Amino acid sequence: MPLHRLDSLSAISAQEWDALVPASQPFLRHAFLSALEDSASLGPHSGWQPEHLLHYEDGQLHAALPSYRKWHSYGEYVFDHEWADACERAGIDYYPKLLTAVPFSPVSGPRLLAARAEDGFALLAALPGYLESEGLSSAHINFTDPLADNALAQQPGWLQRLGCQFHWQNREYRDFQDFLDTLSSRKRKQMRKEREQVAGQGFEFEWLEGHQVSEAQWDFVYACYANTYAIRRRTPYLTRAFFSLLAERMPEAIRVVMAKQANQPVAMAFSLVGGDSLYGRYWGCLAEFDRLHFETCFYQGMDYAIAQGIQRFDAGAQGEHKLIRGFEPVITHSWHYLRHAGLKAAVSDFLRREREGVLAYAQEARSALPYRQD
Results as ranks from 00 to 15, higher is better:
residue 144 T to D: 03
residue 284 G to L: 11
residue 201 Q to I: 12
residue 59 G to Q: 10
residue 127 L to V: 09
residue 203 F to Q: 06
residue 135 G to H: 00
residue 352 R to T: 12
residue 104 F to K: 06
residue 166 F to I: 04
residue 139 A to Y: 12
residue 367 S to G: 08
residue 98 L to Y: 07
residue 100 T to H: 05
residue 368 A to C: 09
residue 252 E to M: 01
residue 80 D to M: 11
residue 230 A to M: 08
residue 210 G to A: 02
residue 130 Y to I: 07
residue 184 S to Q: 15
residue 167 H to I: 12
residue 42 L to W: 01
residue 179 F to V: 03
residue 241 A to F: 07
residue 163 G to R: 05
residue 346 A to Y: 15
residue 94 Y to H: 07
residue 172 E to D: 15
residue 272 L to C: 06
residue 166 F to D: 03
residue 201 Q to T: 09
residue 9 L to R: 02
residue 250 M to F: 01
residue 277 S to E: 09
residue 26 P to W: 13
residue 284 G to Y: 10
residue 219 D to H: 12
residue 318 Q to R: 09
residue 353 R to K: 14
residue 185 S to L: 11
residue 36 L to E: 01
residue 15 Q to N: 06
residue 59 G to Y: 09
residue 212 Q to D: 04
residue 13 S to M: 13
residue 231 I to N: 03
residue 33 L to K: 07
residue 122 A to W: 08
residue 216 A to Y: 01
residue 260 K to P: 01
residue 327 F to T: 00
residue 229 Y to S: 02
residue 127 L to E: 05
residue 146 P to V: 11
residue 148 A to Q: 02
residue 12 I to K: 01
residue 264 Q to M: 13
residue 242 F to E: 03
residue 200 G to A: 13
residue 184 S to P: 00
residue 26 P to M: 14
residue 316 G to D: 08
residue 144 T to R: 06
residue 243 F to W: 11
residue 145 D to T: 04
residue 291 R to L: 14
residue 286 L to C: 06
residue 190 Q to H: 08
residue 219 D to F: 12
residue 58 D to Q: 15
residue 13 S to Y: 14
residue 167 H to T: 07
residue 190 Q to W: 07
residue 233 R to S: 14
residue 285 C to G: 04
residue 219 D to K: 09
residue 195 R to Y: 04
residue 322 K to S: 01
residue 214 S to R: 11
residue 38 D to G: 05
residue 192 R to Q: 15
residue 91 G to N: 09
residue 242 F to T: 03
residue 349 D to A: 15
residue 262 A to E: 13
residue 72 H to D: 13
residue 189 K to I: 10
residue 189 K to C: 14
residue 63 A to D: 09
residue 181 D to S: 13
residue 251 P to N: 11
residue 258 M to I: 05
residue 335 W to T: 01
residue 341 A to N: 04
residue 299 Y to N: 00
residue 157 G to D: 03
residue 253 A to K: 02
residue 103 P to W: 03
residue 198 V to D: 06
residue 90 A to T: 02
residue 350 F to R: 04
residue 52 H to N: 06
residue 211 H to K: 14
residue 181 D to W: 11
residue 243 F to A: 03
residue 98 L to K: 05
residue 341 A to T: 09
residue 271 S to R: 04
residue 77 Y to A: 08
residue 262 A to I: 02
residue 315 A to I: 11
residue 50 P to I: 13
residue 234 R to D: 05
